[in-house]
C-alpha cells in the first residue's frame, strides 16, 4: 500500500480530492498494459479495446513482469497510482497463448480477475473493417445474447465484468445521434467441451462483436436499424478466475442512501451554460445617493458639528483664501 501523502499545494490537493471516495463516483478508468511477452495478436486486441474505451483510459507501453494470478500487487499499485479501477493485461506464453486478463479493483485492492484466451483464428482487429469508426467518447450500447448469461453463475459474473468494463460513463441523458455503435456479447447454449484448469465444467465461450448502427427511414415513426460490423471481432474462452472475496464484494455492492439534491431557488442555467439568477435588491436610499461632487459641498474634517464662533472663524479663513 502507498503511504498517503499530504498535498503540498492547491493543485495536488484538488487532484487528491477528485480521487476521494464519493457517493456518486467518477466513471471508472481503465489501465491497459502488457506482460514481458505478448503476442502481436493480443497487443492488437489490447490496442483495439483501448481505442474503444478512450478517453477514460491509461495505457502503458513498457513490458511488465507481472503474473496477475500469482501476485496481483503490482497491478494494485498501478491502480492506486493512476486511479484506475479496471485493468486489462495482455500476455502470451507457451502454456497460455494469447492471454487477456481482466482485473477489477475495489478501493485499489483486487476484487476479481478473469483470464481469457483469445482465439487467433477468428480474431479480426478494428483495422480489418474499412469503415468510419465512432467518435471518441461515445457511450456504447451493449447487448447480451444467449440464455446462459442469466442461468450460469460464472457467466453472470462475466456479464457484470463486461458491463462494468465496456459501459462507459453513466449519464442522465444521451444524444440520440450519439447512439452510434453497439457491442454484442454472445454465448452459445451448450458451450464446447474444453476443460478449464482445475475446474470440472466446460469453459464458457464468448463472442464479442461491435457494430455500427445505420438507421434507415422505415416510413414509420421508428427507424429501421441495420448494422455494419466495425471490429474488433474477438472470440474468448475463459481460463482462470479469481472470484471476489465475499466481504469485499459485499462492501463494493453497498448502495448509498438516495440524497435529494437541494434545489436552489431562482437560479437557472440557460442553453449556453450561463448561470442566470434573480436577485432582490433592497429599496435604494436616495438620501445617501452620491450626486456631483463640488468643493463647496465638501464637509469639513470634523463632521459638521461646529462650536459656535468656530463657524465665523471658518468663514474668515475661506474669505482669506479667496482673496489670495
Amino acid at each position: 500500500m502507498l503511504r498517503t501523502v499530504k498535498p503540498r499545494n492547491a493543485r495536488s490537493k484538488r487532484v487528491l480530492e477528485k480521487r476521494e471516495p464519493k457517493v456518486i463516483e467518477n466513471p471508472k478508468k481503465t489501465l491497459f498494459l502488457r506482460g514481458t511477452s505478448a503476442s502481436e495478436l493480443v497487443q492488437t486486441a489490447l490496442n483495439d479495446i483501448h481505442s474503444l474505451k478512450k478517453p477514460l483510459t491509461i495505457k502503458f507501453t513498457k513490458k511488465n513482469a507481472i503474473h496477475p494470478f500469482e501476485d496481483s500487487t503490482p497491478l494494485e499499485f498501478f491502480s492506486q497510482k493512476n486511479d484506475t479501477s479496471l485493468v486489462l493485461f495482455a500476455s502470451h506464453s507457451k502454456k497460455r497463448p494469447h492471454n487477456l486478463t481482466f482485473l477489477r479493483t475495489f478501493s485499489h485492492r483486487t476484487l476479481d480477475i478473469f483470464e481469457f484466451s483469445l482465439d487467433p483464428d477468428t480474431f479480426l482487429p478494428l483495422s480489418a473493417f474499412k469503415n468510419q469508426k465512432p467518435i471518441i467518447g461515445m457511450k456504447p450500447m451493449l447487448l447480451f445474447c444467449g440464455a446462459p448469461w442469466d442461468s450460469n453463475a460464472r457467466l453472470q459474473a462475466l456479464k457484470s465484468l463486461f458491463m462494468d468494463f465496456f459501459k462507459g460513463p453513466t449519464v442522465d441523458r444521451v444524444d440520440v445521434e450519439g447512439l452510434q455503435y453497439i457491442i454484442q456479447f454472445s454465448t452459445p447454449e451448450i458451450p464446447p467441451q474444453t476443460e478449464v484448469a482445475g475446474e470440472a465444467g466446460p469453459a464458457p465461450k464468448i463472442h464479442i462483436r461491435a457494430y455500427l448502427l445505420r438507421s434507415l427511414r422505415s416510413g414509420q415513426k421508428l427507424p429501421r436499424i441495420e448494422l455494419e460490423e466495425m471490429g474488433p471481432r474477438m472470440d474468448l474462452t475463459l481460463r482462470r478466475v479469481r472470484e471476489p472475496e465475499d466481504e469485499m464484494w459485499k462492501e463494493a455492492m453497498k448502495k448509498a442512501k438516495k440524497v435529494e439534491p437541494r434545489t436552489k431557488k431562482n437560479v437557472t442555467m440557460d442553453v449556453m451554460g450561463d448561470k442566470l439568477g434573480r436577485i432582490h435588491t433592497g429599496k435604494q436610499d436616495l438620501n445617501k445617493l452620491q450626486s456631483r461632487k463640488m468643493k463647496g459641498l465638501k464637509r469639513g474634517k470634523d463632521d459638521g458639528e461646529m462650536v459656535v464662533g468656530e463657524e465665523d472663524e471658518l468663514v474668515e479663513k475661506v474669505k482669506k483664501t479667496r482673496r489670495e
Binding site: E20, S160, P244, K254
Partner: peptide, 13 residues
C-alpha cells in the same frame, strides 16, 4: 441504471 455493479471505492465515511 438498475443493474447492480460494484463500486470503485467504498462509500465515503
Amino acid at each position: 441504471p438498475i443493474t447492480p455493479l460494484p463500486r470503485e471505492k467504498p462509500l465515503p465515511k
